[in-house]
Design a protein around this nucleic acid. Structure first.
Lengths: 379, 379
DNA sequence: TCCCCTATTGAATCAACGA
DNA sequence: GTCGTTGATTCAATAGGGG
């Protein structure tokens, strides 16, 4: 990195080398859609956790030292999270992964900074390291926090894609995934793992599919071996990586170069209904998918109404949109008219939502027509 | 409570009425072995939430869960955790349960006060409330933090009992347990739930078996309907409950009175190597498919044994898994305990295997879920 | 008695767009 | 910024009634 202090152009699809806060300070505000961060556990503070036999070391047991260590970690956390928040667009979200050693401090600071927690996600490891001394429960999970930049962020959540990924039931907050092992694990010349905490690609796959779109910009301030960047490339997201350790940065760059972007049609996931083009009910009447004067009813054929030529429904003296009249006639505060009303065709009830789909398909066919070689008359 | 400010005698096996910090201040230091706390979560719910069928979700809307801001909640948390730490014996441990709304603040404050986190435990709910608007992942878990009073506490962890309860595989940090529903849920005269957040007995069963001994003193500063106290009585621990709401306190006292302490020999847990059947017998005990203390016998009612709370069987001085004890008592080289043992219900003998089937049916959905490859034995 | 269908419910920070 | 309109959205388990 140069020593420049003026904001740089957004350096897309690169691994930037340097301390993450220093590098982030040079990036322009509100420029990324998503942050994924796997910050250090503060090994200096947590050195005692590294002891294999779990016995207690004499010496540094002073309350003040402890406080100052925790305070140092908090300061570090506050610094990079503040920068991450500046870099996030208004509707952006952040993911942070950690364990019980650091995740509580991270979560509290996220809240203090104005982030709005959306979920805490539990990564349940299928193959965790056992507890060798039998002094605790097997530490078989890590925690991810998913948070929006602020309470009023209109964040992205690809609900239908997640549901499809989970056999058509809502994706839960507990994810069962294996550790990063085997061929996925980057190794040095001696066959030893290159990085102590390389995350599995499956984890980043789910994270990116759930909360980003194609071409979104994803920032990873602690790139390590580049799992986030590699998965971003594979899934055709843009990435910005930051890594201070030259060996890790180099390994990540090589890994990303080897990674191939999937064809666009392989990435497409179940679309969200909210993103489907909006069809006013009136246009179905206009276009004669539904004739004015048609009788519609509810699922149980207990409530009836007549379609009016302006796209409203009429029942006695009551008139309103398909939603309004559905709500009125059921005394409900609101109603989705598309799914509430049916019309009879050949003795069967057809939901208005089905007609809406048909009209969308017909529209798509018309748009494709210029490329069709079949004359309309022959269709 | 009286207005006395001098420490009182330790009021064992009682529910004390009053604000938890006020009451705790009157108790003597270093007098309890374990604290279990289910504090308000500070959910910050705003509007009403409707299900897709337009029914309204009966959310937590009680005054006791309302705090003006995070700083107020932190102050409240620091106050009661400080008192809890004073009341804990040197080697004592504390359990606190929460959700992402509050657990990060609790974890950070625990660390700030000098507690030493041993595990974070994930209670995975088998039947959580879905996410009705499709805007987040289904919030399907809650988090418990288990911490020792300090880094050098020589705390109790009943490793073998946990392993026995989990079919001789180390108990992991993710627990799969159902919500408190059905007959276990306390209700008022109108059949409505008495308390919005009553915890399941299976959760407290596991907590108490894992980290306390018979006759240990367990303090619950937020007693509510008294699940902790009731389980403490059942498992022959001593309890001190604190509850400020008169209705809850009254309900808890009645519940505790109805609860029966198990015979001592049904509670004692012993390390024992066992076979590894697909369904841990211990999970049937834990989830109350089979009550600890139940007498089981062979088909001809000639051999008898008692079910212990860690899922072993006891007969005189002999103890072992359902398989091991069956083999011992018939001088056979091996024995399938599932088909050997029966229990009497309404005068009829029911094979354990039948109970296992019942429990498997309850677990079938979990086993069928594509991202839940983990066998029950490892959960 | 059993099966099937319906109704109920659980610690929940649960919309987005356009005028 | 507000306000009204449109319209997207649920899983597991229990309990009870009817055939």
């Amino acid at each position: 990195m140069s020593g420049a202090t003026t904001p740089m152009e957004l350096p897309l699809d690169q691994i930037l080398r340097g301390e993450c806060v220093d590098v982030m300070r040079m990036l322009p505000s509100a420029s990324v859609d998503c942050v994924f961060a796997d910050p250090p556990y503060n090994l200096q503070l947590r050195g005692e956790l590294r002891r294999p036999d779990d016995t207690i070391v004499d010496g540094v047991n002073d309350d003040w030292d402890k406080f100052s260590d925790l305070a140092t970690y908090d300061r570090f956390t506050r610094d990079w999270l503040s920068e991450a928040r500046r870099l996030l667009r208004k509707d952006g979200t952040i993911w942070v992964i950690g364990s019980y050693h650091n995740i509580f401090r991270i979560g509290a600071i996220l809240q203090d900074l104005g982030f709005w927690i959306l979920n805490d996600i539990v990564w349940r490891k299928s193959n965790p390291m056992p507890n060798f001394r039998g002094r605790r429960f097997t530490n078989a999970h890590e925690t991810l926090i998913w948070a929006a930049r602020s309470e009023d962020s209109r964040y992205r959540f690809n609900y239908q894609a997640m549901k499809a990924l989970n056999d058509d039931v809502q994706m839960r907050s507990d994810w069962y995934l294996p550790l990063c092992t085997g061929g996925e694990r980057l190794r040095n010349d001696h066959g030893l793992k290159l990085h102590p905490t390389q995350k599995p690609e499956s984890l980043l796959h789910r994270v990116l599919i759930s909360s980003t779109a194609v071409d979104d910009v994803v920032l990873d301030p602690f790139t390590g071996t580049g799992t986030t960047a590699a998965m971003a490339k594979r899934l055709r997201r843009r990435f910005i990586g930051i890594e201070r350790h030259p060996d890790y940065a180099e390994a990540a760059i090589g890994r990303i170069r080897r990674e191939k972007a999937l064809p666009l049609d392989a990435i497409t996931t179940t679309p969200m209904k909210r993103e489907a083009p909006r069809v006013p009910f009136g246009s179905l009447v206009e276009r004669n998918f539904i004739t004015a004067g048609t009788i519609v009813c509810d699922k149980n054929r207990r409530i009836y109404a007549t379609v009016s030529s302006d796209g409203t429904l009429v029942s006695g003296s009551r008139r309103g949109s398909i939603h309004k009249l559905g709500a009125m006639m059921t005394n409900a505060p609101s109603c989705n008219g598309w799914t509430f009303w049916y019309l009879e065709r050949d003795g069967e009830l057809i939901q208005l939502d089905v007609l809406r789909s048909e009209s969308l398909m017909a529209e798509a066919a018309e748009l494709a027509a210029p490329f069709s070689e079949i004359p309309i008359a022959a269709q």
